[in-house]
Design a protein around this nucleic acid. Structure first.
Lengths: 211, 211, 211, 211
DNA sequence: AGGTAATCGAGACGGTACGTCCCGTCTTATC
DNA sequence: GATAAGACGGGACGTACCGTCTCGATTACCT
């Protein structure tokens, strides 16, 4: 049973007859994704409506409902076509100086999360994922995990170079690096600044250093 | 219609004439808080409606709108009457063994966050706070910050006892402890287990130790 | 079986919780009736939509659905407040000259049915009644039967005066008078003219005369 | 968008390039007519949709739109292939006894109109014709007028035989016979019984008799 | 027999309206 | 004056069909 969907007035499963993807209109698809990115920036996620997206995209509502199960899913698609995978493939630079590399990347990430045009849709998705377990999986797979993976690779490389103690759980180390960042951002427990990420990197690395 | 408040669709400020709190019905207040706690567990935050709360509580809708600005505010009140302040006042035990004390408290916290009747409303509030900056302040002040404060006190005490290096920023240390926890929970990047929090405490303390 | 209404996706009975009629807004009621009369004249019955009526009346759709089960019911109410009962109460003049009296009234009726502002809504209702048995009852009771009743009274009076044979079934006589009229009008089997109704009266009376 | 055709919402003329009738699929044509007859019986005219007909017939929607201008037109075709012209060609028996002949035919007609499988589509067409002037013409030409014509012929024959006064307008006489019948049926002003038609024939003939 | 042009089944598309849900405001009668 | 009740204007929901369109896959005529 697909969990969360079966309440007393469960919104019955859509799309018994799955549509024929080969006949899908690329033009409409793009228009919908573009419109939803524009609108989420203009009015925010909660006030983003399928109706407005359809109107802005010059598209029938059914065309949205035909291909996406929810407005969150639309936005996720929209966002992931913007945040190209190229971004993740580059990975974190490896100059040999772990601390400098991490600080640099985290400073860049701070800048990114401070930019409203990136922040609005990303926050919208993070929030929707936090609220809805089903959507959460998609969000993690397509955005969060690739983001965490690059750190894992860089730390693993440092561990192999002997800059990190052998008994360290790299996965946990990544969480120590990104958890505080995410918490400050998502829950607004503090401001995102370069000073913050610098200090964070330093403190985390103190715990990772070989003894 | 009470025209031109601010923006075209601004959620205009309610309650110019603030109601007379001394005449407020305690009976209704309790019924509303109880009903919202019940309902958020049954249908989730997004499907929680003021109308349903009013019906369940046997209360007019206006009685809710008179005393609270939003459904999130109702839920926040409802939740904070359940999570008694007593919980925070106790603080973290101080047996002298910092690692043991932290592990114990975090294990208890894991248990709490695994209990559905606690998790549902808390997650609802966290999500609402993540989405809405205004609400976020209330949520932080009344729930998150008191929660973080007890860790701050315990770590400060350890620092004074020389168990933590003098140059450590205790605030940051608390974030390293709770950020990964919150991230796993809120964003579902991992499961909350005692093993996880144990390992987390160990790794964090490694970075805090006096050199 | 109440015929046409029970398909596989029958529109489930509305209004379990019947609204409180004493709190009904007279202002909205009038606006809805006026708007529907205007619109049926402008666009015809098939293109008349609840949505347009609500918009024109400056009313929420729910306010219509709350008080009427269908657009036909709205229109029936709208029409019957225009066609005042006074019209029927007057009855057919009784000058003693049955033929002249009938001719006069039927000529007037022809004029009425030739006037577009009367014809449009009346035809709409007749059509809707022909299609839907349920609605039909209302239509008959509130419009057709009162219309036929005045003829019944006039013919009965003539029968008592000895101008109509005693063994004549007055009800059937009325049907012979109005059936051809209605058929020409509703089914468009011919044009409605004074000549037609004059000839009709003459021929019918020929059959009613005492032998 | 197929710009400026005529009015803002004019149902613009389909089929500039009229299709090649010689290549038409007889198989599809039959399937469509059968499906529409089935469906009109099951769900009624208002809930009869082109989409459902196409699905039931195993046919593309375009195949319907290619050959018929509206669902009413489809149904009219469907119905007229069932009600064979043979039925009308036979005409009304002429035994010499006009009253008996008319009573017999009208009794048979009552039976026909009481049979649901005949009544449903016929009523659908009558209603559609009443609502739509354009369609009305087709309906009259192909169904009503042939039906009235047989009465005209029989009455004319009786008039020639001296059983009907010479000055009688036969057309009007037919209307007096069928108008009340149609009114009872279409508007449900009364039940269709053999007693009714018998009495109707008698009363009408009383007016037609030579003086 | 092969080419080709139209019909065919299928269904995606831009739209309109549906009937429902809930919003936040308002009105009424009760306590 | 706060309250329970709920009618109100309004906005969006997700669905059903409309009539048009585009896609191969047939089909039937014409070289």
């Amino acid at each position: 049973m697909p969990s969360a969907s079966s309440g007393p007035s469960a919104p019955r499963a859509r799309e018994f007859r799955t549509p024929d993807a080969s006949r899908r209109s690329e033009r409409s698809r793009r228009a919908i994704l573009d419109a939803s990115m524009e609108l989420v920036g203009e009015v925010g996620y909660n006030k983003l409506t399928i109706e407005a997206v359809a109107a802005r995209a010059g598209v029938g509502k059914q065309t949205i409902y035909r291909w996406w199960p929810s407005k969150a899913a639309v936005l996720l698609d929209a966002f992931t076509t913007v945040v190209t995978n190229a971004e993740y493939e580059a990975g974190i630079p490896d100059t040999g100086d772990l601390e400098a590399d991490l600080k640099q990347v985290l400073r860049a990430t701070v800048d990114e999360f401070t930019d409203a045009s990136f922040e609005a849709p990303y926050r919208a998705l993070a929030v929707a994922g936090a609220a809805d377990e089903e959507l959460s999986k998609e969000f993690l797979e397509r955005l969060m995990e690739p983001g965490m993976e690059v750190y894992t690779r860089r730390l693993r490389s440092a561990q192999e170079a002997g800059q990190i103690a052998e008994d360290i759980d790299i996965g946990l180390a990544v969480e120590m690096l990104l958890g505080p960042f995410q918490q400050r951002w998502l829950q607004r427990t503090g401001t995102l600044t370069h000073e913050f990420t610098d200090a964070l990197v330093e403190l985390v690395l103190r715990g990772l250093a070989p003894r």
